[in-house]
Design a protein around this nucleic acid. Structure first.
Lengths: 242, 242
DNA sequence: TCGGATCCGATTGTTAACAATATCAGGTTA
DNA sequence: TAACCTGATATTGTTAACAATCGGATCCGA
């Protein structure tokens, strides 16, 4: 299981609300509860065999990590992912992970560095890259980014990226299924990032990390544009309807 | 009232939990409820004239913005601010607001630009700067940063900075009372930032904003170091005790 | 036929009582 | 004396019932 998912599914997790929160988050991220769908409190409570109290608690936390949206006296819905929002996420990651790479280059330990190298080697040997799909879908990519952020030593950075943003990224991947020819390129860029960090070159590490994430964003942007023009061609209504 | 506080104190705010959340957040940020103090649910509930349900809801939200920390079956405490944590916050701001300045330089409207210029002029005319204290304490500083972030047009950036980080910054200011000789310098730097944005120079805008925030951080760091060496001299225990 | 008011049903927000857990004081034993 | 166990107490987590609000269907009038 990915290191940034803070709990095994079966693991206790002190309180009822804790456990339900973790289960719900997984269910939402992996699409088991569809994006944009309404969530009924009594229904879900019954399904999980608890009362509405702890469920509402869990819902509150899900709202805090932007996985559900609530309106008073109306109810909660799973967030519906938009292209614009995904692009905004990439902007945030560019800023935050760029800084994380810089800090990592300053403070990383030899042990963490070796972890990183081993991770890259694993990715290489698994032969996942040639197939293209796996690197993104199996979240080897996020694993890598996660370790860099941890190496930054900035707890607030770790917390923000790993508790909120990465789960959202995972959700987008499950929903949009982002496989692309960039897998191999991305893998090579990861190598360059590790090199810069190993060289203790903060400037370079930040620069490459930012370029890396920006390239991902541009790639996604192009995919969206392509898809948009396709759907527009097959749904001619959209281009004229008033 | 500062534009990033999303609600007037007396304003309804649809639900009980909403109102209590806002009131509690203010009380904590302004130090009315002291940092590090334990929070008793029954006690607070009685004080605010509500039951524990909505109070717990509010507490959950406060936990989400890192203003209180909870441990299951033990209780909640107001966060206790540490120097390390404040420095971490500055790192985050450097990354995020640097990016915000870059985006603002790309997309700001003339209207927003005029707002910014007017704000600076107000700060100048009020003569708050000469006294040094006011610019930070009265939050003219945060008002300025807030507008830049808004001009970035990135909703996620806005949300993250204005709902969480700025409230924490305010809390630090109330608690540590950060007045410094940097007020006048900071004001001039704000001017340079607006210039870069007005020139539509994203690279420069980000550079200056980052340098601006980093200078604040270094300044705070020096203040801490000075204070530490002082207390160490007057509390000789600390330097030897095992 | 269309627009709007009104009622009904369902859902959410709130409350108060109940259960489970941790803290702390006191006593016991090595 | 110190460490450990034990029980009382208070606090939190959980539950189920109650109140308030919203959305939609129905009915009425123009």
């Amino acid at each position: 299981m990915a290191p940034y998912t803070d709990q095994q599914p079966g693991e206790p997790g002190v309180t009822l609300a804790d456990r339900v929160f973790t289960r719900l988050r997984n269910a939402i991220v992996e699409g088991e509860i569809p994006a944009g769908s309404k969530i009924s409190e009594p229904e879900l409570a019954a399904e999980y065999g608890i009362s509405r109290g702890p469920l509402r608690d869990a819902m509150g936390r899900l709202e805090a990590c932007h996985l559900v949206e609530r309106r008073a006296n109306v109810g909660a819905r799973v967030v519906s992912l938009s292209q614009e929002d995904l692009l905004e996420l990439y902007i945030l990651r560019e800023a935050l992970e760029g800084m994380a790479a810089r800090l990592a280059a300053e403070r990383i330990t030899e042990k963490e560095l070796n972890h990183l190298r081993r991770l890259l080697k694993q990715h290489e040997q698994r032969g996942e890259l040639q197939e293209g799909i796996a690197y993104f879908q199996k979240e080897g990519d996020l694993d890598f980014h996660f370790r860099i952020v941890q190496a930054s030593g900035n707890q607030r950075l770790v917390q923000l990226l790993c508790n909120d943003l990465y789960h959202l990224m995972r959700m987008y991947r499950y929903q949009f299924g982002m496989a692309s020819a960039r897998a191999l390129i991305a893998f090579r860029e990861h190598g360059h990032i590790v090199e810069a960090i190993a060289d203790r070159d903060p400037e370079m590490a930040e620069l490459i990390m930012r370029r890396h994430i920006r390239s991902s964003r541009v790639n996604v942007e192009m995919l969206f544009d392509a898809r948009d023009s396709l759907t527009r061609r097959s749904d001619p209504d959209l281009s004229e309807a008033g």
